[in-house]
């Protein structure tokens, strides 16, 4: 490029595009008795070489929540911080040491529709050496690492997953060069990043556990607590969730014990009476068992259900 309009060169982070020719020519003017003269110097042409640089960052704001046997999506950003069009090889590492478990790698996926969200069956599965993403200077691609968590993982286990991106032209110590391998027949030169970079993101198991505790209180017809025919037993069921996360669609059901008779309309949930019919409230009785649809409970929450039977 020859000198043109002022400030015409955009300030790319990656700098002047590789393969650009820097052309320099000086001019001199002077006067002789014969009039003004203008002369040009020789032209010096320097080709800007390709700097190989890459950065990788995790797009997940914190730990990615997982559950035992769950599938996971971790999102990374690979940016070409060099000044040439460069292909990058990607490697996912799920077996990083020093963590609690190793998830199994399902696939490495390129965000081919560029919406930043993993679209199963739409985004392209990465195959090393066959569809290494080619990035223009200062552009990025979103990469998803799809894994599954082993069934043996327990609450609060963490797993480190990392993505490594390397310039296909070559990597090495900053300043290493690959003659003629750059854009526009320029040379390729390894930049400060070493032409490879990696970033990590953590999976954290959030396993919620449901506990159900049942207790009984007996009231006999004589004001005592003996279980005799005619005594009324009040059963109390407490469902509580521990660990981390939320359990959904929790249902408590309990068959009516033999030799007892269910007391109609006796179901309560958190002290609120529930009808026996299957209707808009959460409790019901089907003739042999009570059933209460508790719904979702987050860790630390509990629900108390009671019902009564009479000993025959």
């Amino acid at each position: 490029m020859l000198a043109g309009a002022s400030c015409a060169t955009p300030a790319f982070a990656g700098g002047t595009p590789a393969g650009t020719d820097i052309q320099n020519i000086a001019t001199a003017t002077y006067e002789t008795l014969g009039g003004p003269i203008e002369i040009d110097s020789n032209l010096v042409v320097i080709r800007v070489d390709e700097l190989l640089d890459v950065t990788v960052s995790s797009s997940n704001p914190g730990d990615v929540a997982t559950t035992p046997s769950g599938n996971n999506v971790q999102t990374f950003q690979v940016t070409n911080s060099g000044n040439g069009n460069e292909a990058f090889a990607l490697v996912a590492n799920v077996a990083v040491g020093g963590d609690d478990f190793d998830p199994s790698l399902q696939s490495l996926v390129l965000d081919s529709n560029n919406n930043g969200v993993y679209d199963a069956g739409v985004d392209t599965i990465y195959v090393a050496g066959s569809n290494d993403p080619v990035l223009a200077p200062d552009t990025s691609i979103t990469v998803f690492i799809i894994t599954s968590t082993p069934a043996s993982a327990v609450n609060n286990n963490r797993a480190e997953v990392s993505l490594l991106a390397s310039a296909v032209t070559g990597t090495g110590a900053p300043g290493s060069s690959f003659p003629g391998a750059g854009d526009g027949n320029s040379n390729a030169v390894v930049g400060n990043t070493g032409a490879d970079a990696q970033a990590s993101s953590f999976l954290a198991v959030q396993a919620a556990l449901l506990a159900l505790v049942k207790s009984a209180a007996v009231a006999d017809p004589f004001g005592g607590t003996r279980p005799v025919p005619g005594s009324v037993i009040t059963y109390t069921l407490v469902a509580s969730v521990s660990g981390s996360g939320t359990l959904t669609n929790i249902t408590i059901s309990d068959p009516i014990p033999a030799e007892t008779t269910y007391s109609a309309q006796s179901i309560t949930l958190e002290g609120v009476g529930q009808s026996d019919a299957v209707d808009t409230d959460q409790g019901s009785f089907n003739g042999s068992a009570i059933r209460v649809a508790v719904g979702s409970l987050a860790s630390g929450e509990s629900r108390t259900v009671t019902f009564r039977v009479t000993i025959q």
Binding site: M1, A3, G4, I22, N24, A28, T29, Y30, L33
Partner: peptide, 17 residues
């Protein structure tokens, strides 16, 4: 063979510099 009067050197700065 003659002096150059009012000698001026001009160098445009290349865009990429």
């Amino acid at each position: 063979a003659a002096p150059a009067e009012n000698f001026i050197v001009t160098n445009p700065v290349p865009n990429a510099v």
